[in-house]
Amino acid sequence: MNIFRLAGDMTHLASVLVLLLKIHTIKSCAGVSLKTQELYAIVFATRYLDILTSFVSIYNTLMKLIFLGSSFSIVWYMKYHKTVRRTYDRDQDTFRHWFLMLPCLLLALLIHEKFTFFEVLWTFSLYLEAVAILPQLVLLQRTRNIDNLTGQYIFLLGGYRGFYILNWIYRYFTEPHYVHWITWIAGLVQTLLYADFFYYYFLSWKNNKKLQLPA
């Protein structure tokens, strides 16, 4: 464990807690894409299949449970909670996210480190995580401005993978044989997808204006 990875995990944890808190407190999920949340639930489900078979540390298992629990409860809130589900604007959140999953699955079947069931699904979860934010970013473009909590959620979510990139650089230089091109490239693509959001988020923060994304 290094400071970059810990910062990444804490930032990731903060992002899901901000979202869960927002939905639980104000009983609203306006501006949040259910499609992205469903994709994240699938990312964690396919990423942590080994939660029962391979034990790394208490921290590792605890964080996996938190990420699984929070992502599935966010989906539950948005789909089934009597009050929250009414605030979900389904006619704006129309990204065909199943079209994201198929290319990720095909790519995982083609490019992976080992051709085993777990490894292919784990690689699938990496590719899917890289593009999972797209429905949310598309929804933001449509609804134009976003409330602070959703903005913070996306900012933290994008930031965590940036910390992971620093972690991968640190581990590359400090651990022999630590080379994982698939993880690195997927992580880089993921972070780059947030780049334009970060740009507008920073502008709104600098000019102390409400975050407005261009049409």
Binding site: R47, D50, S54, V56, S57, N60, K64, N167, H177
Partner: peptide, 10 residues
């Protein structure tokens, strides 16, 4: 071959 490295990252 490097030992079967565990996936220690989240």
């Amino acid at each position: 071959r490097p030992s079967q490295i565990k996936k220690d990252e989240l």
